[in-house]
Simulated scan of single mutants.
Amino acid sequence: MATPNYGYEKRQKELAKKRKKEEKLKAKAERKHGGPEDAGAESALSNDASAATPGAEASDRGISGTSVA
Rank of each mutant, 00 (worst) to 15 (best):
G34N: 03
E14Y: 02
A29K: 02
K18Y: 15
K28F: 01
K20C: 02
Q12G: 09
G40P: 02
G35F: 04
S64T: 12
A52H: 06
K24C: 01
K20P: 00
A41L: 14
P4A: 12
R19P: 01
K10D: 04
T66I: 09
A44S: 09
I63E: 13
A16M: 10
G34T: 02
R11G: 07
S46T: 15
A58T: 15
K24G: 03
A56N: 00
A41T: 14
M1G: 06
T66D: 00
K26W: 08
G55S: 12
T66A: 02
S59P: 00
G65H: 04
I63F: 13
G35M: 06
A51F: 01
A69H: 10
R19N: 12
G7Y: 05
K20Q: 12
Y8A: 11
L15Y: 02
K21W: 03
G7M: 13
E42A: 15
G7C: 02
E57P: 06
G65F: 00
A27D: 05
E42W: 09
L25R: 04
A51W: 00
R19Q: 11
A2F: 12
K18G: 11
A29D: 01
D38R: 14
T3A: 11
D60N: 04
T3D: 13
N5P: 01
K21F: 06
K21I: 09
P36L: 08
S59C: 06
K10W: 03
Y6S: 08
R61L: 04
G34Q: 03
A27E: 03
P54R: 09
A44Y: 01
P4T: 07
A56G: 05
R11K: 15
A49D: 10
A52R: 09
A41K: 00
Y8Q: 14
K13R: 03
T53L: 13
L15S: 10
E37Y: 06
S64R: 05
N47R: 12
S46H: 06
D60W: 06
A2H: 15
A2M: 12
K17W: 05
A49F: 00
H33S: 13
S64H: 10
N5V: 07
A56R: 07
P54V: 13
D48F: 13
G65Q: 05
L25T: 04
R61T: 05
K17D: 14
I63G: 07
A27S: 10
V68S: 12
E37Q: 14
S43V: 14
D48Q: 10
P4E: 06
T66F: 00
A52C: 06
A44G: 06
L45R: 14
L45T: 11
K26M: 10
L15V: 03
R19D: 14
E23V: 06
A39T: 15
K32M: 05
S43N: 09
E9N: 15
N47M: 07
A2Y: 10
P4R: 12
V68C: 04
G62I: 05
N47D: 09
